[in-house]
């Protein structure tokens, strides 16, 4: 037996072993991720309503019918644009608040840091429905604390399109900044002290240290936080549903997820709903890929 064949056999043996080790994870991924996504895509090609599910009517293959219905409605594009804008504001807000408080946490005394972390964990741990409801109470037109303090008695925050979006965005930032803050805090803490010390000895200003040392080192952590936030905020449902009472006056505060729920699942049009789900997934994949490529082009290996 030549060395080459022995090596090849050894390698294939390695491959088999690797596959065996990976099998449980692959099975779980396949069952929990690939199969549902596959079903989602399949359902999106059918006229699949409650009648079809319970066997009261035959299945009808529509091909891309659900997608053409979706794309031909002007409402869908308006909601999509609204969702992108809303998510962008929420992501920016979350990152800014998270980063600012993470830096603050590294600068203050331990007791202040503990307070900050406890407050953040409180916001983080609050269930979305409870948090939204509490915010609604705070901003209630007649009885809310905010209106009492500001002297805006009777002003309805949830009526106007932009005030309603603003209020919901603030709530979303409030409940998602702790994740950004704690992750970035851990990231900053993981930067070796010598690096910063060396920069300071070289005479770099605080600003210079932040932009040329801290930020590049934090980039992988920032990437994770940003992608997480984009995905969360794009898919936001509870806050919009609860705070604007299912999408605001005449549906002017609808986001994609709530729209999908209202138009498709509440109306038992599962085929159409699946099509919206597929579009959402593709949009998120596209955003993530573009973002990762941009990061890689700027020289960062993830």
């Amino acid at each position: 037996m030549s060395t080459a064949t022995r090596r090849a056999r050894a390698r294939s043996g390695e491959g088999r072993t690797a596959l065996a080790y990976l099998a449980p994870a692959l099975l779980v991924l396949g069952a929990l991720l690939a199969y549902p996504v596959y079903q989602l895509v399949v359902i999106s090609f059918y006229d699949y309503g409650q009648e079809q599910v319970s066997g009261g009517a035959p299945l009808e293959f529509l091909g891309l019918g659900n997608y053409t219905t979706l794309f031909s409605g002007s409402r869908f594009w308006a909601v999509l644009a609204q969702t992108v804008g809303f998510a962008a504001v929420c992501v920016a807000g979350t990152l800014l608040a998270g980063a600012a408080l993470a830096v603050l946490a590294t600068r203050v005394r331990p007791w202040a840091r503990t307070c900050l972390f406890l407050a953040a964990l409180g916001a983080w741990a609050t269930p979305a429905v409870a948090g939204s409801t509490v915010w609604l109470f705070l901003f209630d037109a007649n009885l809310g604390l905010v209106n009492n303090v500001l002297g805006l008695d009777g002003f309805s925050w949830t009526y106007g399109k932009w005030t309603a979006f603003g209020l919901v965005a603030a709530e979303v930032v409030w409940c998602s900044f702790p994740f950004a803050m704690i992750t970035l805090y851990a990231g900053i803490k993981a930067i070796p002290g010598e690096v910063l010390e060396a920069a300071a000895l070289d005479g770099a200003s605080t600003r210079r240290i932040a932009t040329s040392v801290l930020l590049p080192l934090l980039r992988p952590v920032l990437a994770v936080v940003t992608i997480q936030s984009v995905i969360w905020d794009f898919k936001v449902f509870t806050q919009i549903y609860v705070m604007t009472n299912g999408g605001g006056i005449a549906g002017r505060n609808l986001t994609l997820n709530v729209y999908a729920y209202q138009q498709a699942f509440a109306a038992s049009e599962y085929g159409l709903g699946a099509a919206i789900g597929v579009v959402t997934t593709l949009v998120l994949l596209a955003i993530t890929v573009v973002y990762l490529r941009a990061l890689r082009r700027s020289g960062e290996e993830l």
Binding site: L19, Y38, V42, I43, V53, S54, G55, L59
Partner: peptide, 30 residues
């Protein structure tokens, strides 16, 4: 290695396709 992975995955994929080429329907209630 890559081919073997494919060979391993193919039966699984084709099985999935074969068992579910259309969304599920429960029979009309009798």
């Amino acid at each position: 290695m890559r081919k073997r992975w494919l060979a391993g995955a193919l039966p699984v994929v084709s099985l999935v396709v074969a068992t579910a080429c259309a969304p599920v329907q429960s029979g009309p209630a009798q």
